Computed example of a mutant assay.
Amino acid sequence: MSDYHDDLRLAHVLADAADAATMDRFKALDLKVETKPDMTPVSEADKAAEELIRGHLQRARPRDAVLGEEFGSEGTGPRRWIIDPIDGTKNYVRGVPVWATLIALMVQVEEEGRIGWEPVVGVVSAPALNRRWWAAKGSGAYTGRSLMSATQLTVSRVGRIEDASFAYSSLTGWEERGLLPGFLELTRDCWRTRGYGDFWPYMMVAEGAVDMCAEPELSLWDMAANAVIVEEAGGRFTGLDGRRGPHSGDAAASNGLLHDELLGYLRA
């Protein structure tokens, strides 16, 4: 059993509470939506879900720090919960069911004499799709209705780019970073491409339904839960710079066999 089993159970409780709040307002005609300073939308449901999760954590893990997309950082210490209350807000506000609550626990670790952070628990809950995925370090990755009703996840064994399926979010970010030529070359060379976006391609990599995915601009809360789920399913999750984990401001995930080639295409 993982050292983080109790934290994983708590993350499921947090996801249950968030799911109830977000589904209650999904497709509501009077849903209030604002534009944040970075010009991305935020709905009342984003804020309500994060407040709910923070309230639960305050009671259950009062010593732990919290970082959330809507309300920032709170607390200090060697354990930190990372929350994206609705990953895919643009989908949410348009009635597209591809959105999820992302919850991760990160702990401090020593790497080559330096203190870093590693995600050790991740839950991705997509209630409008009726799907949930989760993992805890050392315990594998799973999908299902609950901890008691779950199927273990395993990445694909596709080993050649020309046989591989690649998922991405959009073209504009690659163009803005000057990485579009390599991105387009990859789309020409691989077997299949689809623009799913947000959390979903990472979960499909973990399931073995997609072989690799990448995004050129992300925040920690977009990646932390995805990273531990992909790795526990046997895959690799790095930045475009090859650094392991959700620390680079961008992401590449794969079944592992294709990872170095994937990074070769997408690096400047």
Rank of each mutant, 00 (worst) to 15 (best):
Trp117Asp: 02
Trp117Gln: 06
Glu118Ser: 13
Pro119Trp: 04
Val121Ala: 00
Val121Asn: 00
Gly122Ile: 03
Gly122Pro: 06
Val123Gly: 04
Val124Trp: 04
Val124Arg: 04
Ser125Asp: 05
Pro127Tyr: 06
Ala128Leu: 09
Ala128Tyr: 10
Ala128Glu: 10
Asn130Asp: 14
Asn130Ile: 10
Arg131Leu: 14
Arg131Met: 15
Arg132Val: 11
Arg132Lys: 12
Trp133Ile: 05
Trp133Leu: 04
Trp133Thr: 02
Trp133Arg: 02
Trp134His: 03
Trp134Ser: 01
Ser139Phe: 08
Ser139Ile: 06
Ser139Met: 12
Ala141Cys: 02
Ala141Glu: 00
Ala141Ser: 01
Ala141Phe: 00
Tyr142Val: 03
Thr143Gln: 12
Gly144Tyr: 03
Gly144Pro: 09
Arg145Leu: 13
Leu147Lys: 03
Met148Cys: 06
Gln152Ser: 15
Leu153Lys: 01
Val155Gly: 07
Val155Arg: 02
Ser156Gly: 09
Arg157Val: 14
Gly159Ala: 14
Arg160Cys: 09
Arg160Tyr: 11
Arg160Thr: 11
Ile161Asn: 02
Ile161Leu: 04
Glu162Asp: 14
Asp163Arg: 10
Asp163Ile: 05
Ala164Met: 09
Ala164Glu: 08
Ala164Asp: 09
Ala164Phe: 08
Ser165Arg: 15
Ser165Trp: 14
Ser165Ala: 15
Phe166Val: 05
Tyr168Met: 01
Tyr168Glu: 04
Ser169Asn: 12
Ser170Thr: 13
Thr172Glu: 15
Trp174Ser: 07
Trp174Arg: 07
Glu175Cys: 05
Glu175His: 11
Glu175Trp: 11
Arg177Asn: 10
Gly178Val: 08
Leu179Glu: 12
Pro181Thr: 02
Gly182Met: 08
Phe183Ser: 07
Leu184Trp: 05
Leu184Asp: 10
Leu186Trp: 00
Leu186Ala: 01
Thr187Asn: 08
Asp189Met: 09
Trp191Asn: 12
Trp191Thr: 09
Trp191Val: 09
Thr193Gln: 06
Thr193Ile: 09
Gly195Lys: 07
Gly195Arg: 08
Tyr196Pro: 05
Gly197Trp: 05
Gly197Arg: 06
Asp198Phe: 13
Phe199Asp: 01
Phe199Glu: 02
Trp200Lys: 13
Trp200Phe: 15
Pro201Glu: 00
Pro201Arg: 00
